[in-house]
Design a protein around this nucleic acid. Sequence first.
DNA 1: AACAACCTCAACCGCATCAGA
DNA 2: GTCTGATGCGGTTGAGGTTGT
Length: 211
Amino acid sequence: MAEEYSMEKEVKLMVPITNKSSKKEFNRGAWTAEEDRKLADVIQIHGAKRWKTIAAKAGLNRCGKSCRLRWMNYLRPNIKRGNISDQEEDLILRLHKLLGNRWSLIAGRLPGRTDNEIKNYWNSHLSKKINQKEKQSGSSSTREGSKSKKRRVTEKVNEEVKEEETSNGGHEDSKISTDLDDFFDFSNESPLTLEWVRKFLEMDKSLCEFH
DNA sequence: AACAACCTCAACCGCATCAGA
DNA sequence: GTCTGATGCGGTTGAGGTTGT
């Protein structure tokens, strides 16, 4: 159900929720247009740091964490909303195979996309595709709820990542810099994509070395 | 039309890590 | 070295929408 951002939908979600268990009774739930505006204004003046202070300065009865999340996933400039293109999907699949559930890393390679968006896209669209492939390759499974199905896919992926990590001596960096052929089938790949992947791996490798 | 099952995605939660005192 | 608050991340939840019966 990929769709363009609509203010109408946003307004419909404006239901204030209060948390009985939280000590300070912060506002929770969907953000209102007014809250968005206040948050954006304060960030424009003070910058996107010290979220607790930002929340207070904006006069928002929200915790800093909530403000950060709203900014990172929604209000930040250059956020791309709506359909994920075929190229982007392809990239997500490849990066996920390479990096596992490291959504922020994957998002970092997709300009304008957030980790949350990619994570959601993976859980709702791509995990299904993988499931279908599994079925095609012979493994049969009975009908079941989408959530448990989703969880199992995530668990499976995590197990695979763990296995890969342990087989590489448990070191993440060595996993990333392992021979590309272990991760991709490049037989149909354009030279441009190959070049991009090489640059990507070099960049990550040099970053790891730097740290 | 009415209901149930399923899907999507914004938001929350808990934990790990970082940075400064 | 350790304590504490801030930040970032991945997993999970749940409201609302869509689709199937």
